[in-house]
């Protein structure tokens, strides 16, 4: 504790320099979703839009399959991925469920238990 040594935290993908470099194109694409025209352009042709930002094959696959964990492994930053989630009309509990393999209800129940300090 109280050390700034990098460490592995299970189930956690810290967004550091390695990830920031790897995920740059993916994050830049998701950042563009701040604009309605960009969202429309993506929806019209997701593959072409991914190519516009030079996404890697692994990133394109993750986007196509809406696989959040894979996006994180490929360098996605949650703040930009959240904009992609918004485009898909998913909220943070939906995203949480997708990542943890729970149903949305199960995920919400877990949050409530965590909030009470029961876990």
């Amino acid at each position: 504790m109280a050390t700034n040594e990098k460490r592995d935290i299970p189930g956690t993908y810290l967004f550091d320099s390695t990830m920031a470099k790897k995920g740059y194109g993916l994050n830049k694409m998701c950042f563009s979703f701040n604009n309605q025209e960009a969202r429309d352009e993506f929806n019209a042709d997701p593959d072409a839009y991914c190519d516009k930002f030079n996404l890697t094959e692994a990133q394109k696959k993750a986007i196509k399959e809406k696989d959040i964990i894979a996006m994180l492994r490929e360098g996605g930053s949650i703040y930009y991925l959240a904009k992609y989630a918004g485009l898909l009309k998913l909220n943070m509990q939906d995203i949480g469920a997708l990542q943890t393999g729970m149903s949305v209800e199960e995920f919400k129940d877990m949050l409530v238990k965590n909030g009470r300090g029961e876990v």
């Binding site: 935290i9 995203i95 877990m110 949050l111």
Partner: peptide
């Protein structure tokens, strides 16, 4: 809070 990763959803009330 943690939004990303399989560990998403942890809250540490204490």
């Amino acid at each position: 809070h943690q939004l990303d990763g399989e560990r998403a959803g942890i809250i540490n009330r204490e």
